[in-house]
Amino acid sequence: MSELARVDVEWHGDFPVAVVTGEIDASNVAEVGAAVRGLVTNQSSVLVVDLTPTTYLDSAGINLMFSLGDELRSRQLSLRLVIAPDSSIARMLKITGLDKTYPTFPTVEAAL
């Protein structure tokens, strides 16, 4: 993956947490998407995506989260987002309604 963003996985018991560090835009959304989707398993009913270390997210990234949520739902799985409150990322979720569609949490611990 380019130096723009990195996806790390943290396991909290059976729950995978995808930690997205860096910036997501049209230039790397496909790579980020592939990395996050690679963490989806049927062992866990939940996928947590931690966007706290994400520093840039435009509509490409927002669209990715909506698509990911749809895909998970079709498999009876659920998407939970971790967002730093009052951050620019939180503002983007708000204006697109992503925060109304999927539950958001201020910390990974709260999301589990």
Binding site: D58, I62, N63, F66, S67
Partner: peptide, 14 residues
Amino acid sequence: GTHRGRGISMMRAL
């Protein structure tokens, strides 16, 4: 597409 076209609404909001 299903999850496309949010860019314009984001621009208008911002």
